[in-house]
Design a protein around this nucleic acid. Structure first.
Ligand SMILES: [Mn+2]
Ligand SMILES: [Mn+2]
Ligand SMILES: [Mn+2]
Ligand SMILES: [Mn+2]
Lengths: 237, 237
DNA sequence: CTTATAATTTAGGCATGGCTAAAAATAATG
DNA sequence: CATTATTTTTAGCCATGCCTAAATTATAAG
């Protein structure tokens, strides 16, 4: 008859199972500010939660020592908070990879499912999953998967918009979580691994003309900022 | 800026995402009573939740029309409640099968993980999973996996305790969720698919002596009631 | 440097799902 | 059938997270 008698000690022994919400907040802080401070509004926006609720949660996270928070000045992760955030990010991206590779999820479907599953899986599950997938370093969007120790694999990060006429560009990553943006890229055939040939940049509007699978296409500057990768001087033969 | 403005209409349009708790209660009612009525205490026991909490939840389930509930007389599932319960059971058992087959989970580890995951996966995930596993009919414990329409595949259900000296018995199912019981069976090599030879039953204590993988073993009557399967008159050659 | 605007916090609620202690109903027993 | 024992419900709390409306504080403009 053990029941739920945890009652909470003053300093929780160690693993009082962080709630889904707390996990998502920590991840959001990391995504918004990495090592800097994330503002209340930015987090409210990211999480789609009203600002006062965020305010309250930031105080709570401070008590849990996941965050350093000063009123009106935003919150930044402590070491322990950062570790939790990266752990969740690892889970999220491994799950996305799995859904994409093994379950034929489309590119813009993986995120929502992973957003839920990330909270439900055990660490045993995650390590078995990593093994099953042969320890991938990047997810289907090209985002780096944090290692168990929190290291982030290197990731090419030159924007397509920074390339020049005549160059080739290998896509490594798409810096967007918006489903409509992602499926638009998918429709164009722009995905990690794909090689693009830049025909030319328009002088003023910033439009870029390029060849995707030998088909001529045009992309706005905004979208060309989202596409990240490497410039290749010597096109593959 | 949609926010969480659902507010709940009088009759919820259709899918206001049932909570984990509600799902677990419905499953517990099904497991405790199938089509009959489950008592408050039985559910409290199953779910490891205090009886007053169960009482409150049963009223709530009645309002949601998942249950017919009369004070002091227990609750029984409505059609809609039963459908939800079987849907969850399907998720649970498919997930257990997956963990066992693809992730090398041991037999007694699958349950706890599935207990969480079952609430987090979408129906898209579940149908992809079913395809991935090639539409299994039974989980690693031999429990039938409900079909999407709620049908339960047939399952051999003769207790080992009902067999007779000299007969062979093919294990199909182990009617227990207790991790210690399951790992004890695992240690003995008793698992779905295994063929046992019954040497003899002790006349009074009910102990059964049998051959498992040609090794002589003894099993108590209690355990022999948990092992379910088919009696085979003609041992395989 | 004052005022208008924007960001953030406080105040006050609400829903969900737990708990314990005490009352009430049902079931079992002499 | 009266009394005890068991089961179940009621009453009263609490924690978590979310919300809106109303301060308050910071920031930007004039
Ligand atoms: Mn999430
Ligand atoms: Mn991703
Ligand atoms: Mn569950
Ligand atoms: Mn099972």
């Amino acid at each position: 008859m053990a029941k739920n008698n945890a009652k909470q000690d003053l300093k929780p022994i160690s693993n009082p199972k962080i709630s889904n919400s707390v996990e998502d907040y920590l991840k959001a802080i990391w995504m918004t500010a990495q090592d800097g401070a994330a503002s209340t509004n930015a987090l409210a926006e990211q999480l789609n939660i009203a600002a006062p609720s965020v305010s309250a949660m930031l105080s709570k996270l401070q008590n849990l020592e996941f965050v350093v928070y000063e009123r009106y000045k935003g919150a930044s992760l402590t070491e322990s908070g950062k570790a939790k955030a990266l752990e969740l990010l690892r889970r999220h991206r491994l799950i996305e990879t799995f859904l994409f590779e093994s379950f034929d999820y489309s590119w813009d479907e993986v995120h929502d499912e992973a957003e839920q599953l990330e909270h439900a899986v055990s660490s045993q599950f995650i390590e078995r999953l990593a093994t099953f997938l042969d320890h991938p370093t990047h997810d289907p969007h090209g985002d780096p998967i944090p290692c168990p120790n929190g290291n982030l694999p290197d990731t090419p990060n030159t924007a397509l918009a920074e390339a020049e006429s005549g160059q080739s560009f290998v896509v490594a990553r798409l810096l967007s979580q918006a489903a409509d943006v992602l499926s638009y890229f998918a429709k164009l055939g722009i995905q990690p691994g794909k090689e693009l040939k830049i025909i030319e940049f328009e002088p003023l509007g910033g439009l870029v003309h390029l060849l995707i699978d030998d088909v001529p296409r045009a992309l706005s500057k905004e979208l060309a900022m989202i596409v990240r990768g490497d410039i290749v001087k010597t096109p593959t033969v």
